[in-house]
């Protein structure tokens, strides 16, 4: 073993490498010297951008929408004076044309959220518990691929199945169950099938990841203590997966309330949802915008309150279980 000579500081044999050149560059040194002068300054420089982003790019639009909802007219036009008013909100409560789609949307979203939960729980349970770990990804991918395809394409696929000349009617006729095609399309049924089709994955994924985290031996321990399959499920598995239930339901509920293309393409005149009502104000003359903004605000607040209340219930339930 040779001894290690000290490394000679002066180096005449060539130019520095990229990183050496960059960090020695006077402009770079000046800038980094400014930004990294102290850990405190470094932190402020780092946090500045996220704060600006959150305020300007994302909170800004929402707050602006709320502000516009209190204006008498927007966009501003010549000769019209803009005043602050709550008229846009009173319009909502005064007319069943607006109230009916609103309640329909809320009821629809809640019912479909619970339907999706009931449908997806066994699927998630099957994936997390009965599929071998190496195969889980494969089984999951099979369900994931359709979800990479966009909303519109999937709605279209549902239209092909449910149309008067669609696959379902063809099958029923071939079986001899019906003679004339059943009009599935443009009804609550087609709309429900579509929404479940579009939102199922947002229920499945949180459920799956919650169930997957529960060690299998918990259930075995309960069985050892004499609990039957149903007791085991309701006393052990379900309470431990409540977090996933909460996340899944929140996601599905909020996505369902915000759907626009789905009710337009799959729904009919009797299934108008609130999103369509809101959009209507933006298709016609500009002075309807404040009303649209007010209605959007109502829906946003309601949706967030419902989702928040739901999460609170879930938290209380799992809190009680934890005790």
């Amino acid at each position: 073993m040779p001894d290690l000579p000290p490394q000679s500081p002066a180096d005449p044999s060539g130019p520095p490498t990229f990183w050496g050149r960059l960090t020695a560059w006077s402009l770079y040194r000046a800038l980094t010297g400014l930004v990294f002068a102290s850990p405190r300054r470094q932190f402020w420089m780092l946090i500045l951008f996220p704060v600006i982003w959150v305020l300007v790019a994302h909170l800004g639009p929402i707050l602006q929408m709320m502000q516009v909802s209190f204006l008498s007219s927007y966009p501003p036009s010549a000769g019209k004076e803009v005043v602050l008013t709550t008229a846009n909100y009173s319009r909502f409560f005064g007319d069943s044309i607006f109230l009916v789609p609103f309640w329909r949307t809320m009821v629809f979203s809640v019912v479909l959220t619970l339907t999706t939960l009931v449908l997806m729980y066994p699927v998630a349970y099957f994936l997390a518990r009965h599929v071998r770990r190496d195969n889980q990804l494969l089984f999951l991918m099979l369900l994931l691929i359709p979800f990479w395809v966009g909303e519109i394409v999937r709605i279209y696929a549902v239209m092909i199945i449910l149309g008067n000349n669609g696959a379902l009617n063809l099958l029923l006729r071939w079986l001899g169950l019906i003679e004339r095609p059943i009009p599935f399309m443009y009804t609550n049924f087609s709309l429900s099938v579509g929404i479940v089709y579009l939102t199922a994955l947002y229920m499945l994924m949180p459920l799956y990841s919650a169930l997957e985290k529960i060690p299998a031996n918990y259930s075995e321990a309960a069985a050892d203590l004499g609990a039957g399959p149903w007791t085991r499920f309701f006393r052990v598995t379900l309470p431990l997966s409540l977090e996933g239930v909460g996340a899944g339901c929140t996601l599905v509920f909020l996505i369902a309330t915000g759907m626009y293309a789905t009710p337009v393409l799959l729904g009919g005149p009797n299934t108008t949802l609130f999103s369509q009502t809101i959009a209507g104000f933006f298709h016609v003359a500009g002075d309807q915008w404040p009303t649209g903004a007010a209605f959007s605000t109502i829906m946003l607040v309601t949706a967030l309150v419902v989702a928040g209340a739901f999460n609170r219930i879930i938290a209380l339930l799992s809190g009680r279980v934890a005790k």
Partner: peptide, 19 residues
């Protein structure tokens, strides 16, 4: 930061439209 992921689609679209 995480809020935009859960704001209903139509509402965020309309908020952006106004903004």
């Amino acid at each position: 930061t995480l809020l935009p992921a859960v704001i209903p689609g139509v509402i965020s679209a309309i908020a952006f439209r106004i903004y």
